[in-house]
Design a protein around this nucleic acid. Structure first.
Lengths: 213, 213
DNA sequence: CTATGTGAACAGCTTCACAGCG
DNA sequence: CGCTGTGAAGCTGTTCACATAG
């Protein structure tokens, strides 16, 4: 029954991909999908797909496959995105603004409820978010986190400011940080960090492209 | 001697992280660093660090450690970023513009040489890049790729246009695609793809935060 | 007959522990 | 003696193959 046993990290990652694909199937009104089809659409084996879902329970129907809407619902529940959750953003530079404008977050159940920046010149400026957000000073983060029950934050500041901001976020009560700064953040065990380093991805490609010559 | 044996994918990923960290050490004028120190700064074991470098050759000095500038040079060579390489960008929306403004690419040896968009209304507009780039129609991609010897492209268009753009990039001669669209791209074996799905990362965090309650 | 769920076999990555070099 | 490079051991995740359900 989906206990919190030892679930491989890669399996959780794939859960998100399954969800994306399942939503595509639903958009075409597919009622059911087999592990083979779902896997093929993502370049994975059918066994992989079945095992991944099996970590969390028995969602399939032998001889039929998986019912698309049901599975979407279950996966959302597992990921904790079945209910909309509030997030905050720190860093209103180019990347921060782009992330605010990105519609994908809202579609997946994340709503940016507040924007912070260290630059005094930016405080008070309005940015295009849900209902026009005003950039606030970092000092007001704690209060906002409490009021809006925010648990996750997006960190989009330069590398040299990142650790200080992460500390502030932790102190404010944030429990998960999506980090875009190219630095290793040191945080306590109560905080989870997921890092996206754009240069690292390009270097990965560079290696692959170079290696295949 | 650094042949193209069977190198674990995770090892290549970490190479980028080592590089980032090594540059931080160099900035503080550290001459040498031990596998233990380098590992600790990234939350990895010393054995892991040594093994990773060993896949590519013998870069260390027993009793001393690794010489920082030398190792930086070697890692860059391995990743293929020891010489600046030209890249292109498709999609001049919010995310595309933010990526253009991001200084990290240039610092790591990648130079955006051209910007393309499918929207006729955007063609001809100037965007803030290295020396002010003009947005071009996708039809001119092939010519530009040839002229500037571009091999890698950044794809930052909406999901429903992504596959078509990827096909166009492939046809134009691109060999590596950094994909920001939330879709699985189908490409031939001559093209490498690295995908960044922002929503997936947030969902990862959501799961971790939810699980630790 | 189709497609799931799962123990068992397998593969790949990481850690260990130590020989060897400066 | 400090620290690397590396076979061997250990562990984690993936694939296989089949019993089982509809």
């Amino acid at each position: 029954m989906g206990r919190a046993e030892h679930i491989p990290v890669p399996a959780v990652k794939r859960l998100s991909l399954y969800l994306r694909q399942l939503e595509a199937f639903r958009a075409v009104d597919r009622k059911t999908v087999s592990s083979r089809e779902l896997g093929a659409s993502l370049g994975l084996s059918d066994a992989q797909v079945r095992k991944d879902f099996a970590y969390f329970g028995q969602f399939g129907h032998p001889g039929i496959g998986y019912r698309v809407p049901e599975l979407i619902q279950r996966v959302r529940q597992i990921l904790g995105t079945d209910k909309t959750s509030n997030v905050l953003l720190v860093g209103a530079g180019n990347l921060g603004r782009a992330l605010l404008a990105y519609r994908g977050f809202t579609r997946r159940g994340f709503q940016v409820k507040a924007v912070f920046d260290a630059d005094p010149g930016k405080i008070g400026q309005s940015v295009a978010g849900d209902g026009g957000l005003i950039i606030q000073p970092v000092s007001e983060m704690r209060e906002k986190v409490r009021k809006e029950s925010i648990r996750t934050g997006i960190l989009a500041v330069p590398a040299d400011a990142a650790q200080a901001v992460a500390d502030a976020m932790t102190a404010a009560g944030i429990r998960g940080i999506l980090n875009f700064a190219p630095t290793m953040l040191r945080v306590g065990p109560e905080v989870s960090v997921s890092s996206v380093d754009l240069a690292v991805h390009l270097e990965q490609l560079s290696f692959q492209v170079g290696a295949s010559m």
